[in-house]
């Protein structure tokens, strides 16, 4: 690993100022993605801005119709939140399926959403719930946030401070784990609201995406049987050593049915 300067700002505006002033500097949150990247020398930033000393960036708040999770909240804290177990259990379940206990004790929701790995779990929940990505300068709706492979609407120097999730009537998440990495080979998040249903898929393609035919079918009848016959097109899906595109397409239907099942149970 190349050496770097290390900054631990104590206020968000100071962190933003440092990011802007120090060329090629990078934020470090849980480090579970960034540190391996630095070790492999895929990146060599001259300075890291550590967000762990910023006040108010960590914690889960119940605001009635929405739940806001601070960017520095660790996966383990989301997984074991009693409030989420009551109000949005699908999100706690999703967090409990990320990596392993040591990864969950360091990795943060902000880091995961900023990184936008095509196989990461949180992007499915953010898009599936139609959440809002809150940054130091603006609110970004999920439908505009995810741009492509590791690409988001974040501007250079922009810091995610929280994710705001609308509380659905019901929600469920089902993931087929890649056995070695435990990332999602395919993961599907399904959420039912009074005004419709959202279905978001991670792992299957170069980025998280919605499945409108499933959303419409589930809005008519919120039951696994409603989507059993809906197959998604293999065009644009990922084929790699872990799975071919047609197998991923097959898994989308299977995982979507399981997610609906989970939402109903």
């Amino acid at each position: 690993m190349k050496s770097f300067a290390y900054h631990q700002p104590s206020q968000v505006p100071e962190a933003a100022r440092l990011l802007g002033a120090l060329e090629d500097s990078k934020i470090v949150a849980g480090g579970m993605t960034l540190i391996p990247t630095l070790k492999q020398r895929l990146a060599a930033p001259p300075a890291l801005i550590d967000l762990s000393k910023l006040p108010g960036l960590s914690g889960i708040k119940d605001e009635g119709p929405t739940i806001t999770i601070g960017a520095m909240t660790r996966h383990a804290d989301v997984a074991r939140s009693a409030m989420l177990a009551e109000r949005l259990p699908a999100l706690a379940t999703l967090a409990s399926l990320i990596g392993d206990p040591a990864v969950r004790n360091r990795g943060t929701i902000g880091g995961s959403v900023a990184n936008n790995d095509p196989s990461a779990d949180y992007p499915a929940a953010v898009l599936g719930l139609g959440a809002t990505v809150v940054t130091n300068i603006r609110d970004i709706p999920a439908d505009q946030y995810f741009v492509g492979l590791f690409e988001t609407a974040l501007q250079p120097g922009e810091i995610i401070t929280a994710i705001r999730f609308p509380v659905p009537l019901k929600a469920g998440y089902a993931k087929f784990k890649a056995p070695a990495s435990r990332y999602a080979l395919v993961g599907v998040f399904v959420a039912q609201f009074t005004d419709g249903v959202r279905v978001a898929v991670t792992g299957a393609g170069p980025g998280v995406f919605r499945v409108p035919p499933m959303e419409q079918a589930l809005a008519q009848h919120f039951d696994p049987s409603a989507i059993a016959a809906i197959k998604i097109d293999t065009e644009g899906l990922t084929s790699d050593i872990h799975a071919e595109a047609d197998y991923r397409a097959h898994l989308v239907t299977v995982m979507a049915k399981r997610a609906v099942d989970a939402a109903l149970s």
Binding site: Y6, G31, M32, P36, D50, P101, A102
Partner: peptide, 16 residues
């Protein structure tokens, strides 16, 4: 164990 919870020390920077 960092503050009582298990973490991977190969993926933890000393400043933490």
């Amino acid at each position: 164990h960092l503050d009582g919870v298990p973490v991977k020390s190969c993926t933890l920077l000393a400043p933490a």
